[in-house]
Amino acid sequence: MLNFLLRILRSVLVLLGVGCLIFALIRLAPGDPVTLLAGPTADIQTVEALRIQLGLDQPMGVQLLKFLSNALRGDLGESLVHRRPVLDLILYALPQTVYLSICALFTALLVSVPAGLVSALRPSSAADRLAEGVVLAAQSVPVFWVSILLIQLFAVRLGWLPSSGNDQWAAVILPAFALSILQWPLLTKTVRTAAISVGSQDYAKTALAKGLSSKRIVFIHLLRNMLVPIVTIIGLQTGAMLSGSVVTEAVFAWPGIGTLAMASLLARDYPTVQGIVLFSAAIVVTISIVADALSLIIDPRLRS
């Protein structure tokens, strides 16, 4: 329990660290941060008003504290483009990103679990080589490029699926598939390693020696022990998933946080980008806590 409380405390410190990094980034950039934050079109009065409003006339330390305490209270500033609180924009786009991510994760599991199991159970078989080839290819192709090819093939040439947006239910298929490709390599490797390691444990041999049914051996004795590393890696991959969704959403014009981020970035809407980075970090940290909690439930050894 103490461990878990420390874990949460640590996550708060991690988030504060992220806040400091973002804070430093804007201030290290060449030029006046107020000009950056106010946007290129703002006149002198607006800039000076914003400087006082943001407290940028005050010492660095005070600015940092104000920035962090605002962020902790959920005040991520105001978008320059939309003239609305950044948090509102994020919360509006969030469900779309969550939906897309879950679909992508599900697709990735559909690919990685069989691929990982095949290469663990039948090493050097044709199926193993195929699985490995697919994973190596997935690791090597640029996802945005594959996305374009997918659009060209399925949306333009064959006309089976919509190429962008989220107006139809089928619109999620292509972006979810593209986003899932990022997850294949690590997830497959994790499933494979977990299967090999669990299968070579003494307790697996014990289960066999007890004459239990194969179903019980696999589902009760082995699967549960395999879950911990898989849950952990899914938790750790949240960051990469969010990174990937910036690119994927932008290519497919999927109206989630990624598209918002890319549009804000290209429009030099720094407060929004900054807010999205902080918010994403918070999601990553929260999900890794959830993953840890799940591991505790699955494996009683971790509790002591």
């Binding site: 003494d202 307790y203 014990t206 549960r224 022990n225 494996d299 050894r301």
Partner: peptide
């Protein structure tokens, strides 16, 4: 059958 390392021979999650 029983094995050498009793801690490893029992399933840790059950």
């Amino acid at each position: 059958m029983i094995f050498q390392d009793p801690r490893m021979s029992l399933n840790p999650t059950l």
